[in-house]
């Protein structure tokens, strides 16, 4: 429930802004010149704000589509991401957004058409190779769909452009927007999972693993291509037993044909983010894990990371062919959560 809406004075007449204001007629409306005046100041408590984030309506200016680090990707060679939304409904303790952003408020960039124009431009740069667009980099793509209307607006756009591929990355079970559309072969809905025991400890406000598997199964049966994101891998007691069980649950819920791709990602965040995350939740056991600093980032000790990653890779290959498995490798400069 949104109780406070900040809006850039320049977007007040935008139809999406007006829609939002009509949807929340009781919200306190607070104008600002630039969303960064509210979002960027230092000294905000991400943790306290997370209890009741406000919505900020703004226009994203400058470059709207960015290249994805070369170590990412799910088979394509032209990979981009864009952020129509900053921040997330959920509150995963490992989420790098809490280390990256000064504020937990949701920033919705209302100029969807500008994003679409740039997607179109990027897609047209190459007619032979498809261009992939990742939408869940700075948010969960679908968790706030009721507020943002993002998928509802972008699915028809991608439906007409088969050479443009979209990844919706989510932990949501509210998939009505997909259930009500015809499945699109160029839109992959990717679900991120950790085993149940970890999810209940770390993924606050996220629907349970079983509910998500059920929701995923439903849209898979409707014909939507599914991505599985085992990301980030979290070291824990009985790691092998728990991850093996998770894979069993996942692959028994969806037919092999529905699986577009599976990716594995280790837990690695820039040092400054990690410090901030730890300061926000000094009592969180996750941050007492067996980590080490490598370059500018922090991740599990190398031998643990390799062992856990190799185990999952081998297990996954019992369920899927190698060409569907991708490693989300992180460098010192980037992260993947």
């Amino acid at each position: 429930m949104i109780e406070v809406i900040y809006y850039e004075e320049g977007v007040i007449d935008d139809p999406r802004t007006q829609l939002m204001l009509r949807r929340y007629p009781r919200a306190t409306l607070i104008p600002c010149v630039h969303y960064k005046d509210v979002f960027n100041p230092s000294g905000q408590s991400f943790r306290l704000q997370k209890e009741k984030p406000a919505l900020i309506l703004a226009k994203q200016k400058g470059s709207l589509i960015h290249s994805v680090p070369s170590t990412y990707g799910i088979g394509g060679t032209r990979n981009f991401y864009f952020s129509h939304l900053l921040n997330c409904l959920y509150d995963c303790r490992y989420c790098f957004l809490q280390g990256m952003f000064p504020s937990a408020h949701y920033v919705l960039f209302v100029n969807f058409d500008d994003f679409k124009n740039e997607i179109l431009r990027k897609t047209e740069e190459s007619t032979d190779k498809p261009s992939w667009f990742f939408s869940g980099y700075d948010c969960d793509s679908l968790a706030l769909e009721k507020i943002t209307g993002f998928a509802g607006s972008f699915l028809p756009f991608f439906a007409k452009r088969p050479n443009a591929r979209l990844e919706l990355r989510t932990k949501s079970v509210n998939l009505k927007v997909l259930e009500e559309s015809n499945p699109l072969p160029n839109v992959v809905t990717a679900f991120s999972f950790t085993p149940d025991e970890l999810s209940s400890q770390l993924e606050h406000k996220v629907p349970s693993v079983s509910l998500r598997i059920r929701a995923m199964g439903k849209i898979a049966r409707l014909g939507w291509p599914i991505g599985l994101r085992i990301d980030p891998l979290i070291d824990c007691r009985d790691f092998e037993g728990r991850y093996r069980e998770l894979f069993k649950q996942l692959f028994s819920a969806i037919a092999p044909d529905s699986i577009h791709s599976v990716s594995l990602g280790t837990f690695r965040v820039p040092v400054s983010y990690f410090k901030k995350m730890e300061n926000l939740y000094p009592e969180e056991p996750l941050f007492a894990g067996k980590f080490e600093k490598r370059g500018n980032s922090i991740g599990y000790r190398k031998e643990i990371e390799k062992e856990r990653s190799d185990f999952c890779e081998n297990e996954l290959l019992n369920h899927i062919p190698r060409e569907k498995l991708f490693q989300c490798k992180t460098t010192d400069e980037d992260s993947c959560a």
Partner: peptide, 26 residues
């Protein structure tokens, strides 16, 4: 106060996270 304005200082936005029955205004 939901926005604190000043002719010289930058505008300060006190974060509105507490439920209350006070009027909210600049």
């Amino acid at each position: 106060a939901n926005r604190v304005l000043d002719d010289k200082e930058r505008t300060f936005y006190p974060t509105q996270i507490l439920r209350n029955n006070l009027r909210s205004t600049a």
